[in-house]
Simulated scan of single mutants.
Amino acid sequence: MNIHEYQAKELLAKYGAPIAAGHAAFTVEEAVEAAKQLPGPLYVVKSQIHAGGRGKGKFKELGPDAKGGVRLAFNLDEVKAHATDMLGNTLVTIQTGDAGKQVNRLYVTDGADIAKEFYLALLVDRATSRIAFVVSTEGGMDIEEVAHSTPEKIHSFSVDPASGFQPHHGRAVAAALGLTGDQAKQAAKVASSLYAAFLDTDAEQIEVNPLALTEQGNLLVLDAKVGFDGNAMFRHKDIAELRDLTEEDAAEVEASKYDLAYIKLDGNIGCMVNGAGLAMATMDIIKLNGEFPA
């Protein structure tokens, strides 16, 4: 189960992660009011959909020359204009496919003077059955492209669940980011807070991209993507309530009401399968014979 950026930031803030001030908005008027509550003079208006690449995305209704789904605003009039453009329109990004996703929510945040951007993520390493950190100095970029072109810039290590997060893990994150002194201490604190959040919420992934170093020398979580193990949500009623069904495929939502795992595919041969391994093998055989699973 995934949640929106503003929800992820509110959650991570409870564990001590440094988050810029911001407010969710569902209407243009709410977006303007949200900006009024921020110090300014720079605001960031961010489309809230379950997909990455929002900044480089395009709105179907606004034409190819329109700005993306993440925009800077230098006054309240610009906040209003951006909110008007975004709400109710369809944002197409590299992760949504051509269909795109309709923007029904916005996140208006305080601007930041960014000196450097980093990448920091936690996920489950299936090979070791441990929580792993993935760290890179190349934040704000497509991490898959970094992994392909400059893999040496990505550092990864796992945490032994018997000992949990230790000071040396924090130092490892700071070293991978090239930080020293007070900034290294900040990085260790951020890493510790994310690890605690990961464990407590049964998360599957916590991705911070970018983790920004401001001109004032502070680390700040500028964007956050958090996903959870759906099978564990019975333990987290508060998190389950954050689920936005409009972001999910209607057929998959309907199937979930009957405890069925339905995955929509656009092939031409339907697959009714039992067990993950058998499902994958069945699809492999179909593909091997030149057809596509549905």
Rank of each mutant, 00 (worst) to 15 (best):
A174L: 01
S192G: 12
Q205I: 12
L177M: 12
A187D: 01
A224C: 08
A176G: 10
L194M: 15
Q216D: 14
L199Y: 04
A172Y: 12
A187N: 00
E207Y: 02
D182I: 05
F228G: 07
Q186M: 08
A184R: 01
R171W: 14
A212H: 09
G178R: 12
F198L: 06
E207Q: 06
G170N: 02
E207K: 04
S192C: 09
L220R: 10
D200R: 06
A176N: 11
N209G: 06
K225L: 13
D182Q: 08
L219N: 00
R235A: 10
V226L: 14
L220V: 07
G217K: 09
E204W: 13
V173E: 09
L177G: 02
D229P: 09
V190T: 05
L222W: 01
A232R: 00
V226W: 07
P210I: 01
V221G: 06
D182E: 14
G181Y: 05
E215G: 15
A224K: 03
K185I: 07
L199V: 10
G217H: 08
V221A: 04
L222M: 14
H236Q: 14
V226I: 15
G170L: 07
L222S: 02
A188D: 00
A197M: 07
K225G: 12
V173T: 01
L222V: 07
G227V: 13
A176P: 08
A175S: 12
L177S: 02
